[in-house]
Design a protein around this nucleic acid. Sequence first.
DNA 1: TAGATTGTTAATCGATTAACAATC
DNA 2: TAGATTGTTAATCGATTAACAATC
Lengths: 211, 211
Amino acid sequence: MSDLIYSAKIPEPALRRLPWYLSYVKLLKSQGETIVSSTQIAKKIDVSASQIAKDLSYVDISGKTRVGYDIDDLINVLESFLGFTNTHTAVVFGVGSLGAALLSDSGLEQFGLKIIAGYDVNPAIVNHAIHHIPVFHSNEFIERNKEMKAEIGVLTVPPGAAQEVSEYMIRGGVKAIWNFTPFRIRVPEGTVLQNTSLYAHLAVMFNRLNG
Amino acid sequence: MSDLIYSAKIPEPALRRLPWYLSYVKLLKSQGETIVSSTQIAKKIDVSASQIAKDLSYVDISGKTRVGYDIDDLINVLESFLGFTNTHTAVVFGVGSLGAALLSDSGLEQFGLKIIAGYDVNPAIVNHAIHHIPVFHSNEFIERNKEMKAEIGVLTVPPGAAQEVSEYMIRGGVKAIWNFTPFRIRVPEGTVLQNTSLYAHLAVMFNRLNG
DNA sequence: TAGATTGTTAATCGATTAACAATC
DNA sequence: TAGATTGTTAATCGATTAACAATC
């Protein structure tokens, strides 16, 4: 008798496919289309039609038999389901090349991630701004985040510092960590962890290239 | 009677975990350790010991019963298995904020990815260099790549251009595409495709934050 | 009505987990 | 020898695929 009955938890692989559908129907919309069927999506992006149907069943949308889905509806429902219409505030720890690029990437804000500050220990960048976003000394985070209240911590520090910095961010009130380091950090129950290691993806690509 | 008998194909989830083990044992090495057991890794990075054992069984390494693995051996074997000791040449299509960051990230070269050129259509950046890597006009790619022979194409263009640009890169001889756009591109049989959409990872994180 | 599509239910497939044998 | 560890084999779990009923 839990509320799991009402919202079946979507499996992660399915969740990761939804942005593909969104991206494709946005393209269709820009071409003036108004209706799309799952079989049509299936052919274009190389995912089986039954998988698309199954994935969309987790989302609150209903298509019309023999017709398909209304493109505007589908875009709205997917964007809202994926959290792209809300604003989530974030800080970036480690303003090296990747961290700085994330500060500069205005695309992220369109997808609901608003970076409000960077933190680093390098005097050459502390107290400067990148793309109008201030960079502070890491020591100041806990004090500053009492007001700023960033919800998400983006982790782009060297791997050796990853675990320590993540714990520091959590002490400062962060509820989720987006980990770009190759290091597998551990977080307490209740903290969300998203690993995005470019090196792991490189490894998969290299392996498939040789096999 | 195929050679699949000799090299069991490693599942992708397992392949993505191997860099975690590598990262952790490199940390141990930097702390002066010489031996590590899978149970020790398990505790520290929150992966079950049996999964680590299973994952390592795909790799050509053998541990010593009652002792564990030699750290230097494990690092060498993992780095070589993951392709980090080879040099793979790459070009980056789309030198926006993310593309430029990849050109600037010297970390990638340490993991076996050597970016030899950027390509874009924006006159403001074409024929300049970023971090000593030249940026050319996209039109010149096919001609230039006859000599440069980049093996991997990194795709950081706007989603609407993703499919078209990927086909162009493949015509130019690229064997694998590292796709950073949220668009699900289709590639011919035999071309390796690695999707790394930051937005998909954002979506997973947002979903888990709310749930 | 016939046919195309949605969307659910059942079957299959593959990865993870658990149990345990082998080893030093 | 006793105990800790590797590494394999079997059981479980969950996602994908296939079949098909419902619908317009």
